[in-house]
Nucleic acid binder design. Structure first.
Lengths: 153, 153
DNA sequence: CATATACCCATTGACGCCCATATATTCCCA
DNA sequence: TGGGAATATATGGGCGTCAATGGGTATATG
């Protein structure tokens, strides 16, 4: 499985370390298993994360913008300066930077939600509520959900 | 990671020295870890910096502008003639030339902002405000920012 | 010679690395 | 197939190393 799926709730220890769920670690390329990138979610009070490979993709894309345009600076600033890289230790744990932790309201536990190509970290209560809310919104449009789920191949 | 990412705020000591963030030092080629180039940002009151290797890339960018345009001369002059090289000492610190420091309004602390292939140095307050402004501009066009961040592969 | 800058050494706190344990999971073999 | 052993995962904690910072002294350069 090379996608981030399922959800987990892990504890944050005294030193601020939290285990990246094992199944998530396995999604990272064997080469760079010891480094991930984190950034504030644009739309929700949560932290998003993924492997560094994704960052290089983003970098390439930004690099293709007109270097002297205002857009270049805006993207570059909003993305690169907001992204933090974090090292995953041999036990699979990492530190969540304070700024991100407070942005997401995370204190003693972090809830990990697989999102396919990336994952989110939430304060557990808020995260679960968000899941319910999304599901509720989707169910309001059953038709489209059914279509999404039953479409083949 | 071979990109300048994240942000840091470091102190400037009595002698005018400031630490280049460790993660930034690691972006510089192992060969030339003791030298960086600095120049005034064209669009903002900040200082931009990078390893000496990137000079060629900047030259290329400028060379791609129309040779007979006014822009060509302006960029060429503004950037090349303003570039200064600075030595990084064994502890990873360097001196910010007075002219650049006053251009950016930097006094006792410098904020380092990763920008991918280069970095910026700001007076902390102004730098943080600039980040917010950038983000605000981009969020007005949610589509583009989301695209930049979530496109897969 | 005077000022600026490089080199050396020191301190503090944060972080990485290592080892340890408890629980859960898988595997293997009788 | 049941039970026990080997393995993996989440978690806890000790300790050495490194990053950021401060300061003394040598050296260079005009």
């Amino acid at each position: 499985m090379d996608l981030f799926v399922s959800k987990y709730i892990n504890k944050i220890d005294k030193k601020g370390r939290v285990s990246l769920p094992s199944s998530f670690r396995n999604v990272l390329p064997k080469a760079n298993r010891n480094e991930i990138i984190l950034y504030k979610s644009i739309k929700t009070p949560s932290i998003e994360g993924c492997g560094v490979g994704r960052l290089k993709e983003i970098a390439k894309r930004i690099n293709n913008l007109d270097f002297f345009s205002e857009d270049y600076d805006d993207f570059s600033t909003s993305i690169f300066s907001e992204i933090v890289t974090t090292n995953v230790d041999k036990e699979g744990r990492f530190l969540i930077p304070e700024e991100l932790k407070s942005y997401a309201g995370i204190k003693t536990e972090a809830a990990f939600f697989g999102q396919g190509y990336f994952f989110q970290m939430w304060e557990p209560k808020q995260g679960l509520k968000n899941t319910e809310d999304s599901r509720r919104r989707l169910l309001k449009e059953k038709k489209s959900l059914r279509m999404m789920l039953t479409q083949q191949k």
